[in-house]
Simulated scan of single mutants.
Amino acid sequence: MSDRVTITIEAGIADVKMNRPDKRNALDPAMFTALAEAGEQLKTEPGVRVVVLSGEGKSFCAGLDMASMQAIAGNDDSEGRSTGNAGDMAEGRITHLAQQVCWVWQEVPVPVIAAVHGHALGGGIQIALGADIRIVHPDTKMSVREIYWGLVPDMTGTFQLGKLVRPDIAKELTFTARVFPGSEAFDLGLATRLSDDPYADAMTMAREIAGVSPGAVRGAKELINNMAAEGAAEQFAAERRLIRAQVGTQNQVEAVTASFENRAPVFTD
């Protein structure tokens, strides 16, 4: 695993940190790979009873790396399609890499608590939604940001969002791509709990969970997930199909170009 993600295990708690603080933990190819590898490792890591997922520095995760966005504006497929083609489909898996960095936390058999602060934008909010529990600072800037860039949410976000909020709310957040605070996320049901120190409170909760019967906790997560995961494979396939239909189109490139040129986009019907 690269240094993009660090894992420290102590007293049954796996402390997982996205480790690119100078870029607000933005998602580049190395971060995608490291997150997925971290989740895979923790599926079978001995002695782990709970996971805390957080970001080093001032933000949880600011979404896709801007270098990838600039590549889209320059019509560079190798970088510009980082979210649409991030990894091949492994045999027997219902996700590709960009989706797996979110979904892997549901596959980890123990509870995963996301400690969210600073920014959780685009892919960042989708990673947070992949956790079982979200402890969020009230001032965190959050957004289902993809449509701003001419894309659709493609990292399991539509599936997870639709499980947590009403369809009209999911549509409003997605269609507008607006930035909203963590306090509103709690009101909407996207945040489990608000905290002025999400990481400290996540660790406190983790210690509480680590202190109860590990078999019972694993069993409870499996039972709840059996109900919650219905339809996931079909939705993830639709995400992959629809993101491919948008990436590199004239309107999608225009959305990115206009943002970098600080002007209003001009779209064609």
Rank of each mutant, 00 (worst) to 15 (best):
W103T: 06
D77M: 02
R145S: 04
A128V: 01
A216W: 04
R241M: 06
E56W: 01
A71M: 15
N25G: 06
A62E: 08
M89A: 11
Q252H: 05
T249A: 11
T83I: 14
K23M: 06
A86H: 08
A258Y: 04
G157M: 13
L53K: 07
A185T: 09
K43W: 12
W103S: 05
H96N: 10
D65N: 07
V256L: 11
V110D: 07
K163Q: 15
C102R: 12
T95C: 13
T8D: 15
V104G: 11
K17I: 11
D88N: 10
I243L: 08
G215L: 05
G92E: 08
R49N: 13
D168E: 15
G12S: 05
L223A: 14
R240W: 05
E146D: 10
G122A: 10
E254Y: 01
P29K: 03
M142W: 05
A11T: 00
M205F: 02
R263Q: 07
E234N: 06
A114E: 14
A255W: 06
A120S: 06
N225Q: 09
K163V: 10
T33M: 11
V16W: 03
H96I: 12
I209E: 02
R166F: 04
R145D: 11
V179M: 05
G211N: 02
A71P: 14
I13C: 03
T249I: 07
R241V: 13
P198A: 02
N25T: 07
R263C: 10
F236I: 07
R81P: 02
N19A: 13
T8H: 09
G122D: 11
E222D: 15
F159I: 04
A228Q: 15
W103Y: 08
A206I: 00
V104H: 06
A86C: 15
R263P: 07
M227K: 14
A36S: 14
V108R: 02
M31H: 04
K43E: 13
V152N: 08
L151R: 14
S59F: 03
F175W: 03
E107F: 04
G150Q: 03
Q100Y: 13
L194R: 01
N85W: 06
T44C: 05
R24A: 13
E234A: 14
H96S: 02
V104I: 15
T33I: 09
F186Y: 14
A11I: 00
R218D: 00
L64N: 01
A238W: 08
D65F: 06
G122E: 11
Q99Y: 09
D3P: 04
I243K: 01
E10Q: 09
M31F: 09
L151D: 10
N19L: 03
A98I: 11
I243W: 00
P138Y: 12
G150Y: 02
P111D: 00
A114H: 06
A36N: 12
G123A: 15
N75I: 09
A67D: 15
A200I: 00
G189Q: 12
P265G: 12
A177P: 03
T8C: 11
I113E: 03
L42H: 01
